[in-house]
């Protein structure tokens, strides 16, 4: 079969697989939601995941937030050159952080750390029959594994973004103050003057969705893992790639709705 014959067939198969997986993920979300009333009883599982997804991610979020803030200050100063006075830098940087940089970069970092680790953990459980063992004990893997992870990511992502935003703003101020000669008063007056609560709320709303989609994809990819160590490795990569792409696509969709 020639390339021109094979390419549409391959595209067709990939499209069918994409929609099948999309459907499976939606079903997983629906099935997880069915167990929501039991989460009070299963709160220990939820708290464990909140600690793993939220608290344990703080050091990474601090580092990423700090450097994001510093880079964005340098970049804003570079773009302002000859166009705008640097007294507006605080406003420009803070709004960029609150709306876009904080939520999106934190989400992508969490997709790498948490989404991939969820896929690896559940994928390993799948290939070593631990998921089957759960079912044989009359324990639903969706209730026991999926829901606590999805809910914990949804709950913890907005606080992580608040953390990242605050640290990033601090990083931006340090660069502005030490290297660009902007005083603290000028910087924070500018931030305050152009501050919109809607920016922060919009950013946190995005974080809420990003958290959910990251964990949901990690769980779904983990449940579908097969073929031993290689399969788990592939699931890990797949979870990161799919959740990062989904975050960026969702970011665009949410922008059109929220701002």
């Amino acid at each position: 079969m020639s390339f021109f014959m094979r390419a549409p067939a391959r595209l067709g198969r990939a499209t069918r697989r994409f929609f099948a997986e999309f459907g499976e993920t939606a079903i997983l979300f629906g099935n997880s939601a069915r167990y929501l009333p039991r989460i009070v009883r299963d709160r220990r599982l939820l708290f464990d995941q909140m600690e793993h997804i939220g608290t344990d991610s703080i050091p990474l979020v601090v580092v990423i937030g700090f450097f994001t803030g510093m880079v964005s200050a340098w970049q804003a100063a570079y773009q302002f050159k000859g166009i705008m006075p640097l007294s507006f830098l605080g406003a420009a940087v803070s709004r960029a952080i609150f709306i876009e940089l904080g939520p999106v970069l934190t989400a992508i970092i969490i997709a790498g750390r948490v989404g991939a680790s969820i896929a690896a953990e559940i994928g390993t459980m799948k290939v070593t029959e631990q998921i089957d063992a759960l079912e044989s004990l009359a324990i639903s893997p969706v209730r026991y594994l999926a829901l606590p992870r999805i809910l914990a990511a949804i709950i913890m992502m907005p606080p992580l973004v608040v953390f990242a935003n605050t640290i990033a703003l601090g990083g931006a101020f340090l660069v502005s103050n030490f290297f660009l000669g902007i005083t603290a008063k000028t910087f924070f007056d500018s931030v305050q003057q152009y501050f919109h609560l809607g920016d922060v709320i919009g950013g946190l709303t995005k974080a809420f969705f990003f958290g959910g989609v990251t964990a949901l994809i990690g769980v779904q990819v983990g449940f579908n893992a097969s073929g031993g160590a290689e399969g788990v490795g592939n699931a890990t990569i797949r979870a990161f790639v799919l959740s990062s792409a989904s975050i960026l696509i969702l970011d665009y969709v949410l922008w059109t709705v929220l701002f």
């Binding site: 029959e129 631990q130 089957d132 063992a133 079912e135 044989s136 009359a138």
Partner: peptide, 23 residues
């Protein structure tokens, strides 16, 4: 249905080939 299946499984013990202990 899932609930019914869980009820039956409560009466079944399953020893997996690789033990399948939760590590």
């Amino acid at each position: 249905k899932e609930r019914q299946l869980e009820q039956v499984r409560l009466h079944i013990g399953f020893l997996f080939q690789g033990a399948a202990l939760f590590d």
